[in-house]
Write a protein that binds this DNA or RNA. Structure first.
Length: 511
DNA sequence: AATATACTTAGTTCGCGGTTAAGATTTTGGGGGCGGA
């Protein structure tokens, strides 16, 4: 091991004898100063790709993460492994805590933050003054492409952040990113020449099945009957919060004995955390959830992922399905479709971005402000109120107006080219809506596909896919009565005393 | 009739509970000296 310094560091700090597939190549690439786009399946240790370099590189590693809970989990885990010079900066810190972190910012080797945080002037100033960034990591990088254009536009400003931080080496990581998402990531962060380390993401132990039914009532009946014969750890996706709650109640009634809960973004943070932990600890069998549930759920024995509603694109579908069978055991994806099910995602797509009329209203509103020599209101809620638009719609517009030179921070640019801005924004909205509608159509086509579900699902994502280890799909060889699941395992899984002790010590620890 | 996804902010408090470091005290094991067999 003497002439293998990377392995030595790996063993010394993380206790592993050798690297997993892909890790070493990526790390060497980064240490040589090359940008890397890494697409690695979940559970193969993506975070090692930057945690180990953070120990070897001179400066600081910045990790952009989409969820506070993800950063907090990572920091907790690293501290537990003995790496103390790690911090997550987010809105959970009080102003005083934040100041303390800023005062000693150069003490940290790893800093986790959200893309929004990187738009905070004080944070950026602190970084620029006191920190030399050796590596800039975008975790869950598909968020750039999937959320950046409409939902969280700060994801599209990372290229500017990189410039301000003296163009450090970049590592973009994701588990599920088809070629067009990979290209979008590189385009948005303005690094066209990234070294690609891409591993196939098709899952050979998941069987696919689609059932056409009449409506939600029949779906829940079917789910109940499947769960009675196959009482396995299960996730059920819905497109509405209300249905998650209703279904959880009805399934509890229908399947005596199964422990069912619901989870969606409208719940209290503490409740969300509790449900997630109970599910991960096998204290719950079934979760009825919206798309809010998923990222950061590292439960290895999820056997069944049901879509009671379809999402709005294949990428989301694959991410959600991919949470099944991380342990390699036979798992199943069950998708329901009833006539009209495409309507919900269609409405989402239509309502997410403002209409042309709203863009024109917004321009009038801005011109009014400019003429009176005023600034934009400090509270965005005030603008949303005046224009009668949603928070997401205003954030999208604000980003577009800024990009088109109409506003600068809170200032409205007087001599802006309003006509051109209007046309370019409206054209962009059309283009995005189109792209999203096509993505929805792609998923709907799959649901109605007559051919092998596995083949048609993965075809557009990668050139080839592995042959399944068990069942393939309901067009080929799968049906529920062939699928044998072992008896519900003991509720209390024995982990060995080290893991049990670790669990006890880390319980309830959140910051 | 409507249906989902997340982040953000707060200026310089105060008291309480818990933790840690340092010092004091007690317990315990081992080493060394001494006397006797």
């Amino acid at each position: 091991m003497q002439d293998r310094p990377l392995e030595k560091t790996l063993y010394k700090h993380f206790g592993y004898e050798q690297f997993r597939e892909g890790q070493k190549e990526i790390i060497e690439e980064l240490l040589n100063g090359n940008d890397v786009l890494g697409i690695l399946p979940t559970g193969t240790g993506k975070s090692m790709c930057y945690q180990l370099p953070s120990l070897l590189l001179e400066g600081t590693v910045i990790v952009v993460s989409p969820l506070i809970s993800l950063m907090v989990d990572q920091v907790k885990q690293l501290k537990q492994q003995g790496m103390k010079r790690v911090v997550a900066i987010n809105s959970f810190l009080t102003p005083m805590q934040k100041q303390q972190v800023y005062d000693h910012i150069n003490h940290y080797k790893l800093i986790y933050c959200s893309p929004e945080m990187l738009q905070n002037a004080q944070f950026m100033q602190t970084l620029k003054e006191k920190v030399s960034v050796s590596l800039f990591v975008v975790d869950e990088a598909h968020c750039i492409s999937q959320w950046g254009h409409e939902f969280r536009t700060d994801y599209l400003k990372l290229d500017d952040t990189l410039k301000q931080l003296n163009n450090p080496t970049v590592l973009a990581l994701s588990a599920t990113a088809p070629v067009h998402v990979q290209n979008d990531i590189m385009r948005q962060i303005n690094r066209p020449d990234m070294q690609k380390h891409i591993f196939p993401m098709d899952r050979e132990n998941i069987a696919f099945t689609v059932e056409h039914v009449t409506g939600m009532e029949e779906k829940i009946e079917r789910i109940a009957s499947v769960l009675k014969t196959h009482p396995v750890p299960t996730m059920i996706y819905f497109s509405s919060r209300q249905w998650t709650e209703k279904a959880a109640y009805e399934l509890t009634q229908a399947t005596s004995g199964l422990r069912v809960a619901y989870y969606h973004g409208g719940m209290e943070q503490t409740d969300r955390l509790l449900i997630q932990q109970q599910f991960m600890n096998d204290q719950l069998d079934v979760i009825c959830c919206t798309s809010a549930f998923g990222m950061g759920v590292n439960k290895s024995n999820i056997r069944l992922v049901i879509h009671a509603h379809i999402p709005s694109q294949v990428e989301s579908f694959l991410q959600e399905v991919g949470r099944a069978g991380r342990d390699g055991e036979q798992s199943v994806s069950l998708t329901f479709y009833s006539p009209g099910d495409g309507e919900i995602p269609k409405r989402f797509i239509e309502s997410e971005l403002p209409s042309a009329e709203l863009v024109s209203d917004a321009i009038q509103y801005l011109q009014n402000i400019a003429q009176n020599g005023r600034l934009l209101p400090l509270q965005p809620e005030e603008i949303e109120e005046s224009l009668q638009i949603s928070e997401v719609q205003w954030r999208f517009l604000a980003y577009q107006f800024e990009k088109n030179g109409v506003i600068k921070g809170r200032k409205v640019v007087h001599q802006a080219n309003w006509g051109e801005a209007y046309h370019s924004i409206v054209a962009f909205i059309k283009e995005r809506t189109n792209i999203k509608q096509n993505k929805l159509t792609e998923l709907l086509n799959w649901v109605h596909s007559k051919d092998c579900l596995r083949a048609s699902l993965y075809q557009s994502f990668q050139s080839s896919y592995k042959t399944p280890v068990g069942f393939c799909c309901d067009r080929c060889d799968f049906s529920f009565n062939l699928w044998e699941t072992s008896e519900t395992p003991d509720r209390m899984e024995l982990l060995g005393w080290e893991k049990e002790l670790q669990k006890v010590f880390l319980q309830g620890e959140y910051q």
